[in-house]
């Protein structure tokens, strides 16, 4: 288990990539939120992929931190896609009562990357209304309207 307190954030073109490889304690999750937001503003990144496939558990604290980070990133004009959540984690999170509304999700990094490209190129173009029938991002796990 990685015991360092900071999780590396990689830059790939206009996106950032984060892979969480360690069990997150609360302060670490807060630190990660802070680091991601800083890197977004430093690099003007348009999107962030957060790979959580190694996370064995997401409780209300981590869940809320992830959802908040997505909302905060949106105010910095960057979209966040959470990638690779484990089935057991997803089931538990829903039973706990969190469904991370407003957060984009993807099955794996490839899908997440494609999704990010779609939503970031769609931003500010013709797709103002994600519910419109011929929108390319139609139903792409777009965040709920709330």
């Amino acid at each position: 288990m990685l015991e360092s307190n900071s999780i590396p954030i990689l830059k790939l073109k206009e996106f950032l990539i984060v892979s969480i490889q360690t069990d997150l304690h609360d302060r670490m999750a807060e630190q990660l939120q802070y680091d991601i937001l800083n890197r977004i503003s430093e690099t003007s990144a348009k999107g962030v992929l957060i790979d959580i496939s190694a996370l064995e558990m997401v409780d209300s604290f981590i869940g809320r931190t992830l959802a908040d980070t997505a909302k905060m990133a949106a105010t910095l004009d960057a979209d966040i896609v959470i990638v690779g959540m484990n089935p057991a984690v997803a089931i538990t999170l829903v039973e706990l009562g969190l469904s991370l509304e407003g957060v984009y999700t993807a099955l794996n990094l490839d899908e997440g990357y494609e999704l990010l490209q779609k939503i970031t190129t769609a931003d500010g173009e013709d797709i103002q209304n994600p519910d419109s029938e011929d929108s390319v991002v139609e139903d792409m796990n777009e965040p709920g309207s709330d």
Binding site: E56, M57, D59, N86, P87, A88, V89, T92, L93, L96
Partner: peptide, 8 residues
């Protein structure tokens, strides 16, 4: 899944 429910 139960392990995850318990740890959560």
């Amino acid at each position: 899944v139960d392990q995850t429910r318990i740890s959560t």
